[in-house]
Nucleic acid binder design. Structure first.
Lengths: 70, 70
DNA sequence: ATGTGACTTACAGTCCGTG
DNA sequence: CCACGGACTGTAAGTCACA
């Protein structure tokens, strides 16, 4: 746990949920978002405090507005 | 310019807008969000790629959901 | 009240791998 | 296919003096 806030957890769960809906593996999502495969895993497990530019990359790869990730 | 994306700009403008609506100075917002005054300025000017935990701090200080910052 | 340059420390993010 | 680890590099976090 890197923080006592739930926001990273919720964000990670949301990414996982949308990734599944798009039938993507972590690796495929990583490719689409131009991020590293291990990093996607860390985000889903709420182990990293993601930055805004990468949030946008994920939103695009998952075909949703940034808003819908929250 | 730290990126060719507009998301940091839009985010900064949104923070500034909400800050004005709450009639706060950058200094006062910084205090409420437990961030540094100069850091708030950098965010509003889109000079920093803010992380999710700090986005949450700003949302709380501005009394909106994270969603509403986008 | 805010912008800016300079700075150090912490951690975002990558890359190699394993079970 | 994913969780997790170690080692690494780049950049965000956070602060300050001064304009």
């Amino acid at each position: 746990m890197i923080s006592d806030s739930k926001i990273l957890e919720n964000f990670g769960l949301r990414v996982k949920e949308l990734r599944k809906q798009n039938e993507l593996s972590q690796e495929q999502l990583a490719q689409k978002a131009k991020l590293h495969r291990t990093y996607i895993g860390m985000i889903e497990r709420a182990e990293k405090n993601i930055t805004l530019l990468n949030i946008e990359k994920l939103a695009k790869a998952l075909k949703v507005n940034v808003k819908e990730l929250f």
